Simulated scan of single mutants.
Amino acid sequence: MNSLDKFPVGSKVKVKEISKEVQIRKRLLEMGIVPGVKLEITGKAPLGDPMEILVRGYKLSLRKNEAVSIIVE
């Protein structure tokens, strides 16, 4: 299983699970990142932090420590 931060720009992935860290997990779920949803990585800063994803029709910026919590396939 890979975390979201490992994929390059342009990748389309499906969320498999979210880490059990309570604060980050709750925030990600509230933003619509739930198991089964499809994400597209649309951009990354030069050092990979933050990254921009397309989720449910809107663009969202995530820090690398947040992206590590999202397990995708």
Rank of each mutant, 00 (worst) to 15 (best):
56 R>E: 13
51 M>E: 02
56 R>M: 13
73 E>C: 04
63 R>G: 10
35 P>K: 01
1 M>V: 06
34 V>W: 08
45 A>L: 13
7 F>K: 01
47 L>K: 15
44 K>Y: 03
49 D>L: 00
72 V>P: 06
57 G>P: 00
32 G>W: 08
19 S>V: 02
72 V>R: 01
9 V>W: 05
11 S>F: 01
63 R>Q: 06
15 V>C: 09
54 L>H: 02
14 K>R: 13
59 K>P: 01
40 E>H: 03
1 M>Y: 14
34 V>I: 14
42 T>N: 07
49 D>G: 04
26 K>R: 15
61 S>Y: 11
3 S>I: 04
28 L>H: 14
34 V>R: 05
71 I>N: 04
29 L>W: 08
57 G>T: 06
57 G>K: 07
56 R>H: 11
42 T>G: 07
40 E>L: 02
52 E>L: 14
46 P>V: 00
5 D>N: 12
42 T>A: 04
68 V>H: 11
11 S>D: 06
24 I>N: 09
54 L>P: 01
39 L>P: 00
51 M>P: 02
55 V>K: 10
47 L>Q: 08
32 G>E: 06
47 L>D: 11
7 F>C: 01
36 G>W: 01
23 Q>R: 13
2 N>G: 09
37 V>T: 10
23 Q>L: 14
27 R>F: 14
64 K>G: 09
53 I>H: 06
26 K>W: 12
32 G>Q: 07
9 V>L: 10
23 Q>F: 10
18 I>F: 01
18 I>R: 01
13 V>F: 01
24 I>R: 04
63 R>A: 13
11 S>A: 15
24 I>S: 14
30 E>P: 07
14 K>G: 00
54 L>N: 02
60 L>I: 08
20 K>W: 10
2 N>D: 12
30 E>S: 15
14 K>C: 05
60 L>E: 11
64 K>M: 11
34 V>P: 09
39 L>A: 09
54 L>S: 06
35 P>W: 05
19 S>L: 07
35 P>R: 02
8 P>R: 09
6 K>F: 11
56 R>A: 10
44 K>W: 03
32 G>C: 08
6 K>C: 12
71 I>A: 04
27 R>Y: 15
13 V>H: 00
43 G>M: 02
27 R>G: 10
